[in-house]
Design a protein around this nucleic acid. Structure first.
Length: 426
RNA sequence: GCGGUCGUGGCGAAGUGGUUAACGCACCGGAUUGUGGCUCCGGCAUUCGUGAGUUCGAUUCUCAUCGACCGCCCCA
């Protein structure tokens, strides 16, 4: 009976972890570049936080959360997204009273949703997200979007599109929602089962339907931007003109709506047509949320943010960027005395900051050389009976194939001297 | 949650109701008492995702279960 990882979870093995670190490092660098600071919040929160923040009619909350009671009977949920935790923390620590009115945070880490696994969709997955809290300015919306675009560009992702839309403020949303219901009411019986459900629950999502995509009423449906209030319209226009000024490519997608309840005004998606993901795959998405903080018990503080699915980024990245550093030295002992000596030497070398390893498998030289190649070792250090006897080692440079007999006390000096040419990376 | 395809060594991949489950890659050993390539030789699945059933006999047929992938739903 062998165990396997639970459905929808994966092990990130060491041959992939380098690529993950590369992605993480890139994201951290970009955030530093934008003066966005990291925030780390718990992986589980009170269930209540998500039902309030994400919306108690959303699919994420109603059927995808990993919720359980802890030993004290509290309802706890593994976070299905990152915004709620950041918002909670912002309120809890009264970060709105910091001298900088605009607080910019990023996070990355595992999220949990009980869904049917597919390529680029797991039950435990990772998101990188950014939240900018404190201002209602369209400049902030655009800063967030530019950061998102910077990410995909830095990763070298091709066939990327930025879709944007505005849902408007609460009044705009309500007016629009009513207009949509009026529009679809007469043709409800021609729409699919899901759309009939959506009609009651979340009419906005009808616009997203793949089944009824070609229904004539889709084209004639009212558009959110036609229902924007004066100020909401001005906000959206400013967002667009700022994007134009920065020469950021985008398309206004009037059917773009988001599934989480907290969004208002600007919403956007970064969509990839990379065949590895399947055409039209969303790799990142976000938008403005002006009522979330107050709904969580804080003051009225607006915010805007987005999240990327890191697994999806990884898939779109491909494998070409992975390269790993080799060892400085691979020690190849022949016999037990040589192994004892190798243990001494390798500990000494490591203490001196060299990356190295030694063979512990008691293999012949041939096999040990193969390992040295696999580890991309700069030097092979051969230690046999002769060397032990004479208190020397045989240093073979794996690039030049040149071999040098080096006394034990001169090993560090020898390596350093050899590296003076500039091979060493530290 | 619904529909579909599929699970054979570390990986890729044949195969059949009957005795030792091809082959390729990788790995290990030898030819080469201590030098990486090539070549040759040898080794490497008490077992065909798991469990049950049919059968004299199941990796093969049936059912269940678990998992992967694809479409839908939803989402990052």
């Amino acid at each position: 009976m062998a165990y396997s990882a639970p459905r929808g979870t994966v092990d990130i093995l060491s041959d992939q972890s380098g690529k993950w670190q590369q992605l993480e490092q890139l994201l951290r660098t970009i955030c530093a570049n934008y003066n966005v600071k990291e925030m780390r919040t718990p992986i589980f929160e009170h269930t209540e936080l998500f039902t309030r923040a994400v919306g108690d009619t959303t699919d994420v909350v109603t059927k995808e959360m990993y919720s359980f009671e802890d030993k004290k009977g509290r309802s706890i949920t593994l976070r299905p997204e990152g915004t709620a935790g950041i918002a909670r923390s912002y309120v809890e620590h009264k970060l709105y009273s910091l001298p900088e009115k605009l607080q910019k945070y990023y996070y990355m880490g595992p999220m949990f949703r009980y869904e049917r696994p597919q390529n680029g969709r797991q039950r435990q997955f990772h998101q990188f997200g950014v939240e900018m809290l404190g201002l209602e300015s369209p400049y902030t919306d655009v800063e967030a979007m530019v950061l998102a675009v910077t990410v995909v560009e830095a990763l070298g992702l091709k066939d990327i599109k930025l879709h944007i839309n505005s849902l408007g403020d609460d009044e705009s949303r309500d007016a629009y929602r009513d207009a949509l219901k009026q529009h679809f009411q007469p043709v409800l019986n021609e729409l699919c089962y899901d759309c009939n459900q959506r009609f009651e629950k979340n009419p906005l999502r009808i616009l997203d339907c793949k089944v009824d995509r070609d229904h004539p009423t889709m084209k004639t449906a009212p558009k959110t931007i036609d229902y924007l209030s004066e100020s909401a319209k001005a906000h959206f226009d400013k967002v667009c003109s700022l994007l134009d000024d920065l020469e950021i490519d985008y398309v206004v997608d009037t059917n773009l709506v988001r599934g989480l309840d907290y969004y208002s005004h600007t919403v956007f998606e970064v969509i990839s047509d990379d065949p590895k993901l399947g055409a039209g795959a969303t790799v990142g998405a976000g938008g403005r949320y002006n009522t979330l903080i107050s709904e969580l018990g804080g003051p009225v503080v607006p915010g805007v943010g987005f999240a990327f699915g890191m697994e999806r980024l990884m898939i779109a990245m491909g494998d070409e960027m992975v390269e790993e550093d080799g060892l400085d030295v691979y020690i190849m002992p022949l016999g037990n005395e040589a192994k004892d000596l190798s243990m001494q030497i390798i500990t000494m070398l490591r203490a001196n900051g060299f990356t190295c390893d030694m063979d512990q498998c008691d293999r012949g030289l041939k096999g040990q050389f193969k390992s040295a190649d696999r580890f991309h070792a700069h030097f092979s250090m051969i230690i046999g009976e002769d060397e032990v006897q004479k208190e020397v080692v045989n240093m073979k440079c794996n690039h030049s194939k040149e071999q040098t007999i080096v006394p034990l006390e001169n090993i560090v000096e020898f390596i350093e001297k050899h590296y003076e040419g500039g091979h060493h990376h530290e």
